[in-house]
Structure formats: C-alpha cells, structure tokens
C-alpha cells in the first residue's frame, strides 16, 4: 500500500507528526513570548524554540520535493543560499543575544522588531542547510562543519550568560519574582537553556560531519 493508493506510509505519518509538532512548538513559543510575567529564561526559551526546535520539525515535515524546491523561487534562492543563511543566522544571533554590547537604542531596535518571526526565519534558513533534500552544500561533511561553526556563537553566548557577572538585558527585565530569582540568576538560567536548546544543532552537525569518514571509505 502506498500514497498512490491514497494511504499514508509510516514515513508520511512521521512527516505529518513532525510538521504538527513544529506547529505546536511555534504556537507554544509565541504564547510564551506574550506572558507578561515571563522571565528572561522563559522568554529566551521561547526564542530558542522558534529558532532551533520548530525549524527542523517543520522542514522535516515537508515532502522532500518541497524541501528540494525551496530555492526555486527568487526569494527562496536568496534565503536558502548557504552564505546568506550563515551570515544572517550568526549576525542575528549576536545582535539579539548581546544587546548590552551595543547602545540602548540599538537594543530597543532589535526588540521592537517582530523578533520571534525573525528567529523562526533565520532558523529555517540555517537548518535547511543541514537536512536532506534542502541541503545545498557538498560534500556533505562540509555542511556539518558549516552547522558547527554557525552554531558556535550561540553556544558561546549561552556560556557568556552563564558566567557573566552583570546583566546584559537591563531594560527588558521587569519581573524577577515569578521564581524568586534575581535578574543575574535569571540570565544564568537563560544561558543554561540556550545551551540546551543549541544541542540538537550541534548533534546534527556532528552527525553530518561524521559522514566525512564514510565518504572517505
């Protein structure tokens, strides 16, 4: 029995489940962004879910021919260009995650934008380079290196948040009492969560990178 017969295969079911899970993650994350008592850790988790969890689930939920066709339009050709995806992803990660290093006005600019949507878009652009059918980098192990390099700033920023002795997000912390933690503790927890949310990208990158050994053999 197959699709031609009008019946879903197990793979189709998995794909559908993946897509629905991606949508669910998106909705939960957008809900988290609008919680008025959310801490930085909750806010950061929602952002990371949009940037690192929803994109692979949504992409894997698309039929392979759709994923392969991501670059067929003019906009798609730009958005899913590996260089564009890499630079936009890294620039956006740094600009959003360390507004304290810029002036306050720039931080306001970053936070005034529909940040969650941008997180989702750059996440989709970047993850597309690491998944079958949408990946355009050859040989495959280079895509692994690409993913590892692109994900490194995110992990470094997570570690900066964990180890920093001062708060980067002063203008955006209005609540500390949800869990009775200080802004600095809140930032540290946000760093821990950022590192955890970054692990799937690291694992996927290592997996793709390891294909180098199979290709050599």
């Amino acid at each position: 029995m197959n699709q031609a017969a009008g019946i879903f295969t197990a793979l189709d079911l998995l794909r559908t489940a993946s897509f629905l899970a991606g949508i669910a993650v998106m909705l939960l994350a957008f809900y988290g962004l609008h919680d008025p008592l959310a801490s930085m850790a909750v806010y950061g988790s929602a952002m990371m879910a949009l940037n690192q969890i929803a994109p692979p689930l949504l992409l894997l939920g698309l039929p392979p021919e759709w994923r392969a066709g991501l670059r067929r339009t003019v906009i798609g050709d730009w958005l899913f260009d590996p260089w564009v995806a890499f630079s936009a992803f890294v620039l956006f990660t740094i600009a959003v995650s360390l507004p304290g290093i810029f002036n306050a006005a720039l931080a306001h600019a970053v936070f005034a934008a529909p940040l969650g949507l941008f997180e989702l878009i750059v996440g989709l652009m970047f993850w597309a380079q690491l998944l079958p059918c949408s990946q355009t980098i050859t040989p495959s192990w280079r895509a692994g290196l690409y993913g590892w390099l692109g994900g490194t700033p995110m992990m470094v920023i997570g570690l900066v948040w964990i180890w920093s002795s001062h708060v980067f997000y002063a203008p955006y912390l209005n609540v500390i009492c949800e869990w009775n933690i200080t802004p600095l503790q809140d930032q540290k927890w946000a760093g821990v969560l950022m590192v955890i949310f970054g692990i799937p990208l690291q694992l996927r990158s290592i997996w793709v990178l390891s294909e180098m050994f199979f290709e050599i053999r």
Partner: peptide, 13 residues
C-alpha cells in the same frame, strides 16, 4: 543581506 540588516538596526538607533 548583512549590510541591509546592519543598516536597518543602525538607522533605527
């Protein structure tokens, strides 16, 4: 793309 992003942030600030 990066120039456009950076220019957008800078212009706003």
């Amino acid at each position: 793309v990066c120039s456009a992003l950076a220019l957008g942030f800078w212009s706003y600030s």
